[in-house]
Write a protein that binds this DNA or RNA. Structure first.
Lengths: 349, 349
DNA sequence: CTGAAAGCGCTTACAG
DNA sequence: CTGAAAGCGCTTACAG
């Protein structure tokens, strides 16, 4: 089996030096490089004849770039459960990466002995074989992210991520504005008291929603009652809590995720309350799983595909300005979906 | 920003040569390397003191391997339409690639100006940046495959693919045996005449099914009537054809794909025939789209995920024996699904 | 048991 | 306009 041709083979065939091959192939028109069209032609002919393809690894070592972009996820990239969740991101990433003329490396190897994925394997950054990477995933490791930032490795996270000792480039969905919009919409429908149920973890995506909720009240000059915000898991949502909400005049619920909403629906059913007659309901983000009794919920759509594309654009932008290590942070608007689960409160009619 | 420490820094601090650092770090206990425990200790101390981390790029270049496996598809890798179709393959590929300790490269760049994907860009094999690749897709280009084989580039196709001037490694589903099983099942149920509807293209997957159909008749010592095999597109399936089948005593239909089956159902409805009372029906492979009026069809499941995994295994096997360029061809068994669409023929009862 | 040297396949100043 | 040389940071025979 014959060996892969390398640069020097091409150079020999074209009767030029290896350096010229490199310059021609990379189309380095800049500075003092002026190569005659004839020489270029000879080089390309030789390349074609030998079927030469530059070794990306050598390229990376020598020149520090190889037009390879990485995708690293903290969960399996093609997971059954998250199927509908990751897919649109990848769709956007692939599309834009192709448009930007890069290839994609999926870091499947980056997983420790415990099966958990991590960027640093034996404390070496496995992303380094690419020019830069897009990271995504819910169960990310913040200290790894810090280290990545410190090292100066170019990457963009899909989702807002903050670290104590630096700033991360990201593209997120504008959960705050989307939440604010829904609150405003509910208030316009006549709802005076709106409960907000969120998970206990202070993830950025949750904080953004809560900020939007608070902002809406502030803008509408309505007093915000702290007890109307519930932070906890679905198991902690008790009939007593929901009943208390009703007693306190709550007529609408803003719920952050599917488990919480399932729980609310279950309890409401027990209490004999129905939607949208007895209360209104909105989900703060599109659901990837069906919520059984509700086919048409009021919610907002997260622009996942567009986020994937934007992440690639940011990354490429980052790579083309290595001198100014500016952090890029972008929030893309969500689309409001007026479903059947929000109506004017009954008493207000 | 201070420069990352490199091997020579460690060597200097530990007062040994760089080679020793490499040997110690990689724990090369083999052959003639015997390094005193004291030296090892000094090296590790230096490593720790400097926070040295080997550069993976340099490592790969020197070690002559990059542990990168490619995935090339002739359609977009994350296509909306084919969503359910490709997904399981990728699932299996990712799982096994991870197990084998490789990373994955997706060739998003490999598409010409016309938008059609091809392996050879400007007649250059773009897969070469990987150690080997898995190919999949329906609209493949045979001459590219031939060229790939000629070049000796290691790859495995998912699906059987034949070329005139060589042999391709592949993993396929055993469509022949699966089809044979269904015919046998139908015959046991009492069907004497079974029609087989297939697309006009002589793709390997179709030929395999037809061979299974023929083999079943041969094994059962039943005469096979050539007119009972229909090769054509769904538009070419006419009411006359189906009526003729019924007149000729056909009580069961073997149909290869979803468009054909939709057409058969449509005509049958017009003729007032119902399943499984008036005729039995089986689909030769699992459907990724729902077939409207039939929730529970008799068919076989294609082991897509397992095919993805097996493809990776074959490829890794290929790579570990570069000396013997043996072609590997594997057919994985399908799972028979006894649905509600096959029953004993009415007259036989 | 360890060092000196060559080489992996590129890119990038630096000369001319 | 092009060549010779150094260097990217490692690994791997080959000596001793």
């Amino acid at each position: 089996m014959k060996r892969r041709p390398r640069q020097s083979d091409v150079a020999a065939l074209a009767a030029v030096s290896p350096a010229i091959v490199s310059l021609v192939i990379n189309d380095r028109a800049d500075s003092n490089v002026r190569i005659s069209p004839e020489t270029r032609q000879r080089v390309w002919d030789a390349v074609r004849e030998l079927g030469y393809v530059a070794n990306p690894i050598a390229r990376k070592l020598a020149g520090n770039q190889n037009r390879l972009l990485g995708v690293f996820t903290y969960e399996a990239i093609f997971p059954l459960e998250y199927r509908n969740f990751y897919y649109p991101f990848l769709l956007g990433i692939e599309e834009e990466v192709q448009a930007q003329d890069y290839d994609l490396v999926l870091f499947t190897r980056a997983s420790g002995p415990d099966g958990k994925r991590s960027i640093y394997q034996d404390s070496i950054n496995s992303l380094q074989i690419t020019d830069g990477a897009i990271l995504l995933g819910v169960h990310e490791n913040r200290s790894e992210l810090s280290r990545l930032v410190q090292e100066g490795f170019p990457f963009v996270f899909i989702g807002r991520r903050e670290i104590p000792d630096g700033a991360i480039s990201y593209v997120t969905a504008d959960y705050g504005e989307a939440t604010r919009t829904i609150v405003e919409y509910m208030v316009r429908q006549g709802h005076q008291h709106i409960a907000y149920l969120r998970p206990p973890e202070n993830r950025e995506a949750t904080l953004d929603r809560e900020a939007g909720y608070r902002l809406a009240f502030q803008q509408l000059d309505k007093p915000l009652i702290e007890q109307h915000i519930f932070a906890g898991n679905s198991e902690e949502v008790t009939p007593q809590l929901i009943e208390r909400f009703f007693v306190e005049g709550i007529t609408a619920f803003l719920v952050e995720n599917t488990p919480l909403i399932r729980r609310v629906l279950e309890i409401a059913r027990q209490l004999g309350k129905s939607i949208p007659r007895d209360f209104s309901l909105a989900l703060l983000g599109d659901h990837t799983e069906e919520i059984d009794p509700i086919p048409d919920i009021t919610t907002f759509l997260i622009p996942r595909k567009e986020m994937g594309k934007e992440a690639v654009r940011l990354l490429v932008d980052l790579l083309s300005h290595p001198d100014e290590p500016h952090v890029r942070q972008v929030a893309l608007p969500c689309t409001f979906v007026a479903g059947q689960t929000v109506a004017a409160p009954f008493r207000a009619k």
